[in-house]
Amino acid sequence: MYDIRGYYEAETVREATELLRANPKLKIIAGGTDVLVKMHGGQLEDAELLSIRKIQELRDIRKLENGTIAVGPMATFTNVFNDQVVNKYVPILAEAAISMGGPQIRNIATIGGNVCNGATSADSASSLFALNARLKLQTFQGERVIPIQEFYLGPGKVDLKPGEVLTDILIYPEDYQGFGGQYIKFAMREAMDIATLGVAVLCKLDSGNFGEIRIGLGVAGPTPLRCVEAEEFARGKKISLETIGEIGKLAVKSTKARTSWRASKEYREHLVEELTQRALQTAIVRAGGVDFV
């Protein structure tokens, strides 16, 4: 049962922030695929909703003049998957988008909602972590831009201050140019499933050696995370199966996997090791390197 106490609609960001200032208790609703499920399950009672669906500018995905990719939070997963800018410059985000839910859910669920919901299993998060994405958060008074890593505080907890609206997801040129990558979603089902593990790997080559690699993982801890130790190990190393194997092992060190009904800790750790290597191998090929498979 949906216990909706009030419903407001904003047509501009300005209007949204004003409404939020007047009533900080308003709950933002984008696609509603998390919000409504929570209301139905009784986790969110007596809600007053603020819809931002009519704010057209929040839907755009564009490449700015300085090369930054700006993804509007109201872009649906279908929008993201089909977007030319995304496919050309950050295809790892398109891979994440198509792995999510099913067609109906992808048509309504937004990438901003995915991020703000704060789940470690969010399919967009591993890729956005690997891409060092920044989030632009606006209030009535002003705005701030923070790295996505700092936004995630704990399971379902994000650093969204009262009155704030997420208005852009930014990916800087140095974070995608020259990288190849892959997102692998490991789940029990091929569609309509929450990830058992999400692995996003980006890789930049430096004449036969690893230049820079980035490993973003979902469901390997209470929040999405980066495998810093493995990434640092890789820098400048010769590309070989041995190095890749070592990277896989080191990736496990950054995880805080736990046993849940979906999988045991041991199995999840094994998946981290194995799938990191797999994604890395593909990333190497996509970055123009050797094919080990």
Binding site: G102, M188, R189, E190, A191, M192, D193, I194, W261
Partner: peptide, 28 residues
Amino acid sequence: LFEEVRYSNLGKMETNTFMQYKIPCRQD
């Protein structure tokens, strides 16, 4: 391959939604 009705160690059913109780989808 997918389905199982499971209980917690207190006897509460854990698979009481389609989120936990997996039936195969077309792609599976």
